[in-house]
């Protein structure tokens, strides 16, 4: 179960941080969207852990 939780957190950051990075690249900003994406992603990861693994 621990592995699944860690996987969700890292996956959340990587997926939305990565999408943010692509947006940065496209818009021409220097990393603001990657930062926002990583925060949003880890939020989603925490939400998923609560829904999937929580009681």
């Amino acid at each position: 179960m621990g592995m699944t939780a860690v996987a969700y957190l890292i996956a959340g950051m990587l997926v939305w941080g990565g999408i943010g990075l692509l947006v940065d690249h496209w818009v021409g900003t220097k990393g603001i969207f990657a930062g926002i994406g990583a925060v949003v992603g880890i939020g989603g990861g925490v939400y998923l852990i609560v829904r999937r693994l929580g009681a």
Partner: peptide
Amino acid sequence: LIPIEFFS
């Protein structure tokens, strides 16, 4: 959430 689920 779906992209996170797919990725993980």
